[in-house]
Amino acid sequence: MRAKLNATKTRAALRNSARISLQMLLILLLMGVGLWLLGWMWPVVWPLVIGLLLATLTWPMTRFLRKRRWPPALAASVVTILFLVGSAGILALIAVPVASQSGELVDGVVDGIQQLRQWASGPPLNIGDDQISSALDTAVARIQDSIGNILNAAVTGVGAVANGLITAVLALFLMFFFLKDGPRFLPWLSRQLPGRLASDVPAVAERCWHTLSSFVKSQAFVGLLDGVFIGLGLWIVGVPLVLPLAVLTFVAAFVPIVGALFAGVVAVLIALVSNGLTDALIVLAIIIAVQQLEGNVFQPMLQSRSLGLHAGVVLLAVTLGGSLTGITGSLLAVPVAAMIAVVWGYIREQLSDPVEEPEAVRDELP
């Protein structure tokens, strides 16, 4: 009798395991189909994501104007124009000082190359001019042999720039429409959905909007910290173009990994050609220290507080996103993880049993 009971339990456990495994396979299949559709629609989804992030960044100013009884279209237009003017001002703030000191930078580059050649010709390398000339001839020959690949890469680069411009224009228009018609979207969505979805989906969408807003604000604050501390270090060392480099560091903070690397390389190169190797090494040490603090301390702490995620989850999300889809994955990993947490939290709230109130408390309620 006991053996038959154990066999029955075993068969029931196997049936449950098979059913759960089948459900997991179906979920993975649906996720695969969803990712395939996302990749197929990516030329449309990517401008939509950028426009949404820009809208969360500029919405506070739009909300301020709308509370002052500005028409929605006028408020969105003014904020969009101010955003364009501010972006152009940032570019000018970077480009004008660089252009004004371009002569000094070119002379510094030439001097740096001469110093590098003199250092290479001495011990311990003892590289002579004939060896350098031979290496240059070899490099020129290789470039000539691979001229076709270079042209293909150039055409690909031009296409990437054109796609980037199209994406930027689409994102800007989408930002304008989000700012103009954003508050009307949730009521419209509620009217389109049946049953309980009419209240659940808008509630989750509103929470996700606040999560995205918190992400953009925390990222801007982290970029401000990077720009201030690195700019202060450059000013102490005496590197030229401190203000453009600080602004470049702030802007680059919105592009994970590559942005910080690019801004750091530019700062080190300018320190090398203008101040020499010692100051360049000092600047490199400053940038590494600030970026380590930013990446491992400030950013996880700020994003964990504003997004409701643990600092370890933030680090793991960025690592996973970067390993899966590169820079784009690193950029979107944290907000996606935060929105997943929002959706899961809402589902947990809806599935949890309501807390029973004591009889005495219920009697006292009106």
Rank of each mutant, 00 (worst) to 15 (best):
M1W: 12
K4G: 04
N6Y: 12
K9V: 07
T10S: 10
R11D: 03
A13C: 05
R15I: 10
R15F: 09
S21K: 13
L22D: 06
Q23L: 03
L25Q: 13
L26M: 12
I27L: 12
L29N: 12
M31A: 15
L35A: 12
L35M: 14
L37W: 14
G39W: 06
W40Q: 11
P43H: 04
P47A: 04
L48F: 15
I50F: 11
T56G: 09
P60S: 03
R63P: 00
L65W: 03
R69I: 08
R69E: 12
P71A: 08
P72Q: 06
L74T: 11
S77E: 08
V78M: 10
V79M: 05
L91I: 11
I94D: 01
V96Q: 07
S100K: 13
Q101S: 13
S102H: 05
G103W: 09
L105M: 06
G108F: 00
V109D: 01
V110Q: 13
D111W: 09
D111T: 09
Q114E: 12
Q114T: 11
Q115Y: 04
Q118E: 14
Q118C: 03
P123V: 09
P124W: 05
G128W: 12
G128R: 09
D129K: 07
D129Y: 07
D129S: 10
Q131I: 02
Q131M: 05
L136M: 13
V140Q: 13
A141R: 11
I150Q: 11
N152L: 13
A153R: 07
A153M: 13
V158G: 06
V158W: 12
A162L: 15
T167S: 08
A171Q: 06
L172E: 02
F177S: 00
F177C: 04
K180M: 15
D181H: 13
R184D: 06
W188G: 06
L193M: 08
L193K: 03
P194T: 07
D200F: 11
D200V: 15
A203P: 01
A205W: 00
A205F: 05
E206H: 03
H210Q: 14
S213W: 02
F215W: 10
K217S: 10
A220P: 04
L232T: 07
W235L: 15
P240K: 02
P240N: 10
V251L: 11
V258K: 07
G259A: 03
A260Y: 01
F262T: 08
A263K: 01
V265T: 06
V266R: 00
V268L: 02
V268G: 00
I270M: 04
G276K: 01
L277N: 05
D279T: 10
D279A: 14
L281D: 03
V283M: 03
V283T: 02
A285D: 06
L293R: 03
F298P: 00
Q299M: 11
P300T: 03
L307Q: 01
G308N: 04
G308L: 01
V313Q: 08
T319A: 15
T319G: 12
T319L: 15
L320A: 07
I327H: 00
T328F: 06
L332I: 14
L332F: 08
A338T: 03
M339T: 02
M339F: 11
M339H: 00
A341V: 02
V343C: 11
W344N: 10
Y346K: 12
I347P: 03
Q350S: 06
P354E: 10
E356H: 07
E356D: 14
P358N: 10
A360P: 02
R362S: 07
E364P: 01
E364H: 07
L365Q: 13
